[in-house]
Nucleic acid binder design. Structure first.
Lengths: 197, 197
DNA sequence: CTGATAACTTAACATTGATAACTTACCGGT
DNA sequence: ACCGGTAAGTTATCAATGTTAAGTTATCAG
């Protein structure tokens, strides 16, 4: 009953409720029986997409690698995911309609207390996961240049800045994309964790 | 004849063409005599706002300070400007309707070849200016960790990530804002220019 | 068979961005 | 002083959008 949302791939923002209904083979107002409004539909679709990112990160959390390497891996996964699902990423983190509940809650209490079913939560969960890795890094005895929460925010902002720029200006003649990705990870890590020596 | 646009401050995205027309004291279709469509109106307003940022940066370019300090100052100015004009910044860099011409041209030829009158150019000019400062840094004999254009892109993405995150989630309980700003500048600089020692 | 509940449809609205057709004022040339 | 055309607006009108109201069909317990 929710598989229908996969169809949006094409137009998306230009995707009208009537077109969705047509694709699903149902009349437009029928959608309002399942979703509050158009934003709810989009949110549900984004959540579904982000769920896969969170699963990937779940898996990574079990891997036994040095915490800083884990940060690199998770960062890469985050970036790649964002670039592979630009529209969902845009809607979740750049459209400007972040649901109020998540805004208020913040990341302090970790992912605990985040209801994964709540629409719009998946994006915040991915975000929180990245934060959690950072706490772990600090607990492993690495020295940071900033308080852990500030450090986490800074790193996330770096990654977000990279993908946001690329997503919003895909036709801009950026230099090699992989160089940018690798470079930004380096910049973020070097900037935040105090390197030995 | 263009002073009218200042009125948008309030609703903005929710700002309808008819409301603009009412505020200006003119009928709705009259606006189409001066602007191609709604986007053109918004672009014109954004340009007007960004012009002030470019003027500030023009002034900074004349100051006689070490190039790396100049980068810090310009970065701070950029960030502060973005946070002071969140809606304009959003429309210019995050709304997803960057004009095609600017997309294609890129920043390689510096600001030369950018017609400042062309709608939508001011944002790109501010961007290019930041890039230019970076070329200057390299010419001053600083060693960079990346090619100059990549370095410039990375730094801009850092700044952009910071303001984008804050602008889109103003209610999120970020840690102290000034700490984030100062921290991000540090991260960007430390990450990109090879520090002595 | 009745009556209510669920799942949907058609009809209708208000608002939006945008265009077409008409009106009015001004201004230079003869 | 008249005439023609251009500039600047207006009103009337469109098609499309998100959304709600009212009606229709089917299903199923008692």
């Amino acid at each position: 009953m929710a598989a229908q949302e996969l169809f949006l791939r094409d137009g998306y923002e230009a995707t009208t409720i009537r077109r969705i209904a047509d694709l699903v083979g149902v009349s437009a107002p029928a959608l309002y029986l399942y979703f509050k409004d158009k934003d709810a539909i989009m949110l549900a679709l984004c959540d579904q997409t982000f769920r896969s990112l969170n699963e990937v990160m779940d898996g990574m959390e079990k891997e036994d690698v040095a915490p800083i390497a884990r940060l690199r891996r998770c960062g890469t996964a985050y970036i790649r995911f964002a670039l592979e699902h630009p529209r969902q990423y845009w809607l979740t983190f750049m459209s400007g309609n972040t649901p109020d509940k998540i805004k208020k809650r913040g990341h302090k209490p970790d992912t605990a207390g985040l209801d994964p079913e709540e629409p719009g939560a998946q994006g915040a969960i991915a975000f929180s996961r990245l934060m959690g890795i950072f706490r772990e890094i600090e607990n492993s005895g690495y020295a940071l240049n900033y308080p852990v929460d500030t450090a986490a925010e800074l790193v996330w902002m770096c990654l977000h800045g990279l993908v946001a720029a690329i997503i919003n200006n895909p036709e801009f003649p950026w230099t090699r994309r992989d160089a940018l990705i690798e470079g930004m990870l380096e910049v973020a890590v070097r900037g935040v964790v105090k390197m030995p020596g």
